[in-house]
Design a binder for these strands. Sequence first.
DNA 1: AACACATTTCCTGTTT
DNA 2: TAAACAGGAAATGTGT
Length: 245
Amino acid sequence: MSITPFVSLESPVTATWGPANSFHDGPLVMSSYTSRLWSQDSQPQFWSKYQVWEWLQQVMDIHQIDASSIPLQNFDMDGHQLCSLNYHDFIRAAGSVGHILYNSITELKSGGQYHVDIGQLEIKHEKVYDPLVHTHAPNVSPTPSSPDPRGTHLWEFIRDILLNPERNPGLIKWEDRTEGVFRFLKSEAVAQLWGKKKNNSSMTYEKLSRAMRYYYKREILDRVDGRRLVYKFGRNARGWRETEK
DNA sequence: AACACATTTCCTGTTT
DNA sequence: TAAACAGGAAATGTGT
């Protein structure tokens, strides 16, 4: 029984992928994007009905959700009323999308500069700064991605490492990009990084892999047997494809 | 306060 | 033999 076999990580790894990793460029990019959208009236409490409607459109747009999928009339209200809704009100008014809307408005109420950072990895490669993006295009959302605000889950963390080759010091590698198959090259280093993000210095690949195995049942990962350290994204893992539908 | 969810921790056994 | 894989069971932390 060895006690501490793998504590010696290459420092470049942690140095490169510091505490900020995916949260780092998100706010920077989105702030310039959203500031254009909500620069003047950043305080939702004072929005007019029209501004609430605008906000709704933008959030749906950014998440690539068809605006017709929710009863928009449920949001025929001004900012003051909108801000008085609680989580359940949002769920009641917009179903599962209510969660996204709730997060968005919560962020804005607290004075957040950005409120959505999904797909920030892909976004930063796009011309989000392009003034055209904002004219009156119904479908110019930056990227196809998961309707998940703030990726805090393990599989998203793994996905983000894969999507950031320039910041991935050989930790994980695609085996089959189109099929979503990937392999851990430095399993313990990834575990340490994951632990760092979760503020857990005792994370190990052993424990991380247990969490990965739980993903099989949820179909976030598909089983790949016979190949050690190899996993594959499943139907419920979003945002990893080059061209997401 | 209670509860759901997503791990985290630990463990025993099997496989590569 | 060491490192992975498999899952069960229970503990934990976070957010609603």
